[in-house]
Simulated scan of single mutants.
Amino acid sequence: MQLRRATPDDHARAGEVTVAAYADFTLGPADPYVSRLRDAATRDREAELWVATPDDRDDEILGCVTLCPPGSPWRELSGPDEGEFRMLAVAPEARGQGVGEALARMCLDRFRSERRRGVVICSLPEMTDAHRLYGRLGFRRAPELDWSPLDGVRLHGYRIDFEESQG
């Protein structure tokens, strides 16, 4: 698989992959968050959208992630010396193939190379598959980062400190 910055040709498919990956965690097509998940073009313009594609099919999106560099309005939790990524999504047909891990590692490598102190992210409590991945990568629960973007929605914070994870 290859990881690369999204192009405008990728935006529609990346948006659909994100909607499909998050389908079990929304209220259905009428959920206002679905349009935000689908809007890959805005994420790419205001942050950085990265995609995973098969080696032999550059037009097929296996997964994507929004990497939030300093100054991006997509940053929700991170301080100036921390990295953050959001909306890590894997196409349902590509689950279990290491796509999410490859995208998350790419984000960690990027922020490590920029000499960030660590990375913070948030996730719904129900996203247990994602939590297992984050644990394997060295993230730990950070309850001090928990927050609610909307009434009835509680997000759990996670943190990885590079000094600790490099052991």
Rank of each mutant, 00 (worst) to 15 (best):
L27A: 15
V153Q: 04
L108E: 05
D58C: 03
A102M: 10
H11Y: 15
G98H: 11
C122K: 06
A130S: 11
P143K: 13
D31L: 07
Q97L: 13
E163R: 09
E16A: 14
D31S: 07
R154F: 01
G71E: 09
R117C: 07
G118H: 02
C122M: 02
Q166R: 11
A30I: 00
R38T: 02
E114W: 09
E16D: 15
T26Q: 10
R36L: 13
E126K: 12
L108R: 06
V65L: 08
G15Q: 07
L77K: 08
G118Y: 06
A21Y: 15
P69T: 01
G96M: 05
T128V: 14
T42Q: 14
E60I: 15
L27D: 15
F162R: 02
G138K: 09
E16P: 00
A6S: 13
A102H: 12
C64F: 05
D59I: 12
V99K: 00
S72M: 08
M127A: 13
M127D: 08
A94P: 04
P143V: 14
A41F: 01
A104K: 07
R159K: 12
L49V: 09
D55E: 11
G71P: 11
A41W: 00
G28S: 09
P69H: 03
G83V: 00
A142G: 11
T66M: 05
R86H: 13
D161H: 11
M1W: 02
T42G: 02
G98T: 11
L49Q: 03
E76A: 14
V34K: 12
T53D: 08
S35P: 00
A6M: 09
A20I: 04
D146K: 08
T42N: 12
M106D: 13
D56L: 12
D151C: 01
F111K: 04
P92E: 00
D151H: 07
Q97T: 11
P80C: 05
G71L: 10
G152Y: 08
R141T: 13
R4Y: 10
V120L: 05
R117Q: 10
P125G: 08
E16R: 15
G152K: 06
Q2W: 03
T42K: 14
V90P: 00
E60V: 15
Y134C: 01
E46R: 13
P54I: 01
E48Q: 14
Q166C: 06
R4Q: 08
R36W: 07
V119W: 09
T7P: 00
V34D: 08
V51K: 06
A47D: 03
R45I: 09
R141N: 09
G138D: 06
C64S: 12
D56P: 13
L67A: 13
D9E: 12
S72Q: 05
G167R: 11
P8I: 07
F111H: 06
S78T: 03
M1A: 09
A52Y: 03
D81Y: 00
T53C: 15
T26D: 06
L150H: 14
A52F: 01
L133M: 14
A102D: 08
G28Q: 02
W50G: 02
A21T: 12
R57S: 08
E144D: 15
D44R: 13
D81L: 03
Y134S: 03
V51S: 10
